[in-house]
Write a protein that binds this DNA or RNA. Structure first.
Length: 538
DNA sequence: CATCCCCATC
């Protein structure tokens, strides 16, 4: 009973564990209670390992223990554990227990093995609506909408969860018309039904419809708020996300994680760190988890100095957060962006499994640190491991070619993106313009800009302007600066650049005109490329 | 008293 009051999950597991071992001879009923308790608290790994320990003692598991253990295996995708418990289900004679059989079919349904799930379902002597719902969610997850619809029609006593599954299935498939129809038809709706509709609208890009639905709700829970915040985050609308977040009455861990991630993903690293600071204040105090730190590390890497990180690192130690591959990958990015390429490499080699994100972070790190040949080597290694590159990988690779001044290779690389079905983003164009321009191919760079499939931004024009300054090209410089001024409110840097071009080619009057009221020093940044350049007027 | 639906990761 004391257990339910403990909010720190690690402590909960510890308590449960020690209580069990304080009993002289815990019977299988006690074991079952603790396993069920852990599973309900979301401590699935702990629940499974406790079940394994109980099995080793040759205790006869209760139906509670076995169904909770199966649920835990399903949640953490523990195939091996799930299948071995399946074997025990027969051994201990739970073939007719509806709870155990349902947990079993749900396990296979969650693993995506619909044949076995269906087999378990067909063999069941007794089925509850939960059994039907488990199989239904499996069909929906597999994208089998027709089969799901058909199966849904056969459910004898549909409850709100059956309806919710169908609504969310159609919403996830992008079929909002059908989702709306079902939502209208539902005999009763709970918060999950409304939240599924919000998710659907956001996924198909209708944030306005999502907000209308959200505003029309008479009651909302954390999931409703978090879904909206994440939706605004995806659309880059940090202000709207923050407004909602500030209106929340009871902010939990996930709300903070969503808002911190929103800031970290939308280039607001300072705000992300401020929020992290807020959640640790004694009057709020919310215990951060690995996901909090994943975003916080990303925020640190955007700030580009290791000072913030050393503070974060000690907080991580305070909370007993252990580095996993995800966090280590975020750290690789941090170290690389701060110039500690050796530390980045060390972490990279310590990873259990190097995935697309890890490779991309490392390639980018080599790129911005002038290690072009390392970046290329990593890229080839990645391809050899059959990992398909994405847009981020190419940002790193093109950055590497850019730093090395390898124009031809860089151009080939840019053109090879389509071989992987990738369409270059505006950042990739920005790097290419910079690469061509620095090498003196100003006309080619200008041609690339005019042929871009999207509207060029200030970064792209800025890169051309910078190249014009390097090679003192007045005509293109004037064009570039006009576009920059149109696109950016702070234009002092652009103007001083053009002014210095005029000065170099002897157009002193024009130079003077540009320079009036202009600060001598400015920083121009090319997006997708991490270098910054200090420029001084003559 | 268990089992199913909605939210967050570089």
């Amino acid at each position: 009973m004391l257990l339910w009051d403990v909010t720190n999950y690690r402590t909960v597991a510890h308590y449960a564990y020690s209580m069990l071992h304080h009993l002289h001879n815990p019977d299988s009923f006690s074991w079952g209670c603790v396993i069920r308790f852990l599973s309900q608290k979301g401590l699935f790994t702990e629940a499974v390992s406790l079940y394994v320990e109980m099995s080793r003692m040759r205790l006869y598991p209760t139906s509670h223990a076995i169904s909770s253990a199966l649920k835990s295996c399903a949640r953490i995708q523990n195939v091996l554990g799930g299948v071995s418990i399946h074997g025990q289900v027969h051994v201990f004679g739970f073939d007719t227990c509806v709870y155990v059989q349902t947990a079993l079919l749900d396990l296979y349904s969650k693993m995506g093995d619909m044949r076995t799930a269906r087999h378990v379902f067909d063999e069941m002597a007794e089925r509850s609506v939960v059994s039907w719902n488990s199989l239904l969610s499996g069909y929906l997850k597999a994208g089998n909408l027709d089969e799901a619809q058909d199966f849904f029609g056969q459910i004898p006593n549909k409850d709100v969860i059956s309806w919710n599954s169908m609504v969310s299935g159609y919403a996830k498939a992008g079929n909002m018309d059908q989702a709306c129809t079902l939502f209208q038809l539902m005999p009763e709706r709970n918060l999950t039904s409304w939240n599924a509709m919000i998710t659907g609208f956001i996924d198909c890009g209708s944030i306005v419809s999502a907000r209308e639905l959200f505003d029309s709700m008479s009651r909302r829970n954390c999931v409703s708020w978090i879904t909206m915040i994440a939706g605004y985050s995806k659309g880059g609308d940090v202000d709207s996300a923050r407004k909602l977040f500030d209106q929340m009455d009871h902010k939990d861990l996930l709300s903070y994680n969503a808002m911190i991630a929103c800031c970290a993903q939308n280039s607001k690293p300072k705000e992300a760190l401020e929020l992290f600071n807020d959640m640790l204040k004694p009057n709020i105090y919310i215990h951060p988890d690995k996901m909090t730190f994943a975003s916080v590390i990303s925020a640190c890497s955007q700030l580009g100095d290791l000072e913030h990180w050393s503070w974060i690192e000690s907080r991580m130690n305070d909370f007993g957060i252990v580095l996993d591959d995800h966090l280590a990958t975020a750290l690789i990015d941090l170290y690389a962006k701060c110039g500690s390429i050796g530390m980045a490499y060390e972490l990279f080699h310590s990873l259990r499994k190097r995935d697309l994100v890890a490779y991309s972070a490392m390639i980018y790190g080599c790129g911005i640190n002038g290690k072009a040949s390392d970046a290329i080597k990593l890229f080839e290694q990645m391809l050899a491991e059959c990992i398909i590159p994405n847009l981020v990988t190419y940002t790193g690779l093109l950055t590497a070619y850019n730093h090395a001044g390898l124009v031809e290779k860089g151009y080939q690389c840019f053109n090879s993106m389509k071989n992987y079905g990738l369409v270059p983003s505006i950042d990739h164009y920005g790097i290419m313009v910079d690469l061509l321009g620095r090498a003196g191919y100003l006309d080619e760079a200008y041609k690339l800009i005019t042929n871009m499939p999207m509207q060029p931004n200030a970064g792209v024009w800025g890169a051309l302007l910078l190249a014009c300054r390097l090679h003192n090209n007045v005509d293109l410089g004037e064009i570039a600066v006009q576009h920059c001024i149109k696109l950016e409110s702070d234009t002092t840097g652009y103007c001083s650049l053009l002014s210095s071009i005029y000065a170099t080619v002897g157009k002193w009057d024009d130079s003077k005109k540009m320079r009036t009221g202009v600060e001598a020093k400015e920083i121009i940044r090319v997006p997708g490329c991490s270098w910054t350049t200090n420029l001084t007027s003559p």
